[in-house]
Design a protein around this nucleic acid. Structure first.
Length: 525
RNA sequence: GCCUUGGUAGCUCAGCUUGGUAGAGCGAACGCCUCGUAAGCGUUAGGUCGCGGGUUCGUACCCCGUUCAAGGCUCCA
């Protein structure tokens, strides 16, 4: 683009004279390198017609490599992917943008079938509704992630979901992505819905008087919601939404040494959180991205993270810093359509401390800006549900029984009375079971045993107790375990112990549906 | 934003090629059956075939437009 207004050639102007031009460049809204370019009618040449972003973009260069746990770094082309098929998919997906899906991802049908969530036609695309089962699952995951972050040392806060785009602290970056935000006009104010928890927490951190002795200091928010008005065609089931729930923990660190120490702890936290949520190390592949400078100065940090992952890792090395961070890693889940999506992630941000005026005083009584880590230990909660459903769909495809982690199952135990003679017994039994923090319901409908078993099986319910003459007159229960399909006899106490063992250390919430299935309306989605 | 596909009963879908009184399964209501580990039987109720226009004696069906949705692409900061 030329730095001279006379070079603009106007071929037509349907509504009178064109009064101004506004050209915007894509980039992270927090990235200084992304600038708004305007050219007004005054004809005065704009000194910044060519943005830093454009200059940077033309120069940004990525080197794609694979790093093995032993620290060996090779070019993608030289790596043998024979035993690392999903990593190969991720590498091609990221480096060559190779994709080849032509059917809906299987989790979309499952999320409806299990009564978890659905599209809400009366809202905007990508704004899902969560039915009782889905809300229960989501709430349990939210609580679990929050508990773990607090245990790690994050302090939970709450910040507004909308911001005034003309407020001085917002002006510097708001206009970078007008098409990707929800904008609200309210009484003359131009508000936008937050797309991340970052600036809410940065503005809050700005209010603290911090000493180096206070650092690292960690703020955490579970944003319900963050909003990104993605293009309509980008939205896919629970994988990609316009309104999503994002746990976001920022650590303010006094220097790079502290930041790299901290990022290791958060790496382990993320691994552990995913594992406990039911997503194993083998379910995701790691990518790590950093600047060449960072690599040269902190090679051992990168190698240590890769070693913790224990498998080869996709590496993207930038010739120079283009974003606000110098290092970023993420765990990528590969779904049944071979699509990659990021779950956990962390970044080392070296710019926003200064940009937001966040300060601390160091040992020498000098004011400094902290390095900020941006970690989501799980990624979006909706995306966790997506990953769990995609895993279940994969199990199903490969001949295994699909299931959710037991602590997330909307119904954990179902009681089926043989006929109404046994209703009283079932009422007492179900009360006793639910008293022990187990979600139990009773299928008291006038249907055959076979049909009620079949229905329970389709709801992926782990334990089924059929109650008839035999059980009423026995000390033991007949327990059908879905994982084996076999019926075993166990005493009430032993059964209880078996169930409790599987939910140990996880949050609990009571059944979120009527206990009796005869009282339950059918959800038709 | 672009491309593709779709919108028929509460849900899933058939019917459209070749225009002629709207179909099934599931679910629901009612009744029968009273059942031992993956779907027992019957009856009934439910539809301006997304919306608008055109063609035709006549359109769910053909044509044009429009709208909404899903999926793909770009994108994912």
């Amino acid at each position: 683009m030329e730095d001279d207004s006379s070079d603009f050639e106007i071929t037509h102007s349907p509504f009178g004279w064109t009064k101004s031009y506004k050209i915007q460049v894509k980039g992270h809204p927090l990235a200084e390198s992304s600038k708004v370019i305007t050219k007004d009618s005054s004809g005065i040449p704009d000194k910044e017609l060519t943005s830093d972003a454009l200059k940077g973009e033309s120069k940004i260069r990525s080197y794609w490599k694979i790093m093995s746990p032993d620290g060996n770094l090779v070019n993608i082309g030289d790596f043998d992917f024979k035993n690392h098929k999903t990593l190969e998919i991720l590498a091609k997906y990221e480096s060559a943008k190779q994709r080849n899906a032509d059917v809906p991802p299987p989790h979309v049908a499952l999320m409806k079938k299990l009564g978890i969530s659905d599209y809400e036609p009366a809202s905007d695309s990508g704004n899902m509704r969560f039915f009782p089962n889905g809300r229960l699952i989501k709430s349990l995951i939210e609580r679990y992630v929050t508990d773990r972050v607090k245990e790690y040392g994050g302090y939970e806060v709450e910040t507004p979901i909308m911001y005034d785009s003309e407020h001085p602290s917002m002006v510097s970056y708001f206009n970078r992505f007008p098409a990707r935000q929800y904008n609200i006009d309210s009484d003359g104010k131009k508000l936008f819905l937050r797309f991340a928890a970052c600036f809410g927490q940065f503005l809050m951190a700005n209010q603290y008087q911090m000493s180096y002795k206070n650092l690292p200091y960690k703020l955490y928010e579970l944003t319900r919601y963050s909003f990104r008005r993605e293009q309509s065609g980008e939205l896919v089931g629970l994988r990609r939404l316009r309104a999503f729930t994002m746990p976001d923990c920022h650590a303010f660190c006094k220097d790079m040494t502290q930041a790299t120490d901290e990022i290791k702890k958060r790496f382990e936290l993320s691994q552990s959180v995913l594992h406990e949520l039911g997503i194993d190390e083998s379910d995701y592949d790691m990518a790590i991205r950093f600047t060449e400078d960072f690599y040269n100065e902190h090679k051992s940090v990168i190698e240590e993270l890769v070693k913790k992952h224990g498998r080869p890792v996709l590496v993207e090395m930038w010739k120079e810093k283009f974003f606000y961070f110098v290092l970023k890693w993420e765990f990528n889940f590969i779904d049944n359509l071979k699509k990659a999506s990021a779950l956990s992630t962390d970044q080392i941000d070296v710019e926003n401390g200064e940009r937001y005026g966040i300060e601390f005083v160091d040992e020498n009584n000098t004011k400094k800006h902290p390095i900020i880590l941006h970690n989501s230990p799980s990624g979006a909660i909706e995306r966790i549900i997506y990953a769990l459903l995609e895993k279940a769909a994969k199990d199903s495809k490969e001949g295994r029984k699909p299931q959710l982690p037991f602590w997330l199952a909307p119904t954990q135990v179902r009681i089926i009375p043989l006929n109404e003679e046994f209703y009283d017994f079932c009422e007492t039994l179900s009360t006793k079971i639910s008293f022990n923090e187990i979600r139990v319901d009773v299928d008291d409908r006038n249907e055959s045993i076979g049909k009620r078993i079949s229905i329970a099986e389709k709801e992926w319910i782990r334990y089924i107790l059929v109650i008839g003459e035999k059980e009423v007159n026995s000390e033991n229960l007949s327990i059908r375990d879905r994982t084996t399909g076999k019926v075993v006899e166990l005493s009430f106490e032993n059964f209880l112990n078996e169930v409790k063992e599987q939910t140990k250390g996880k949050p609990f919430s009571t059944l979120n549906l009527p206990k009796y299935l005869s009282k339950r309306p059918q959800l038709m989605v």
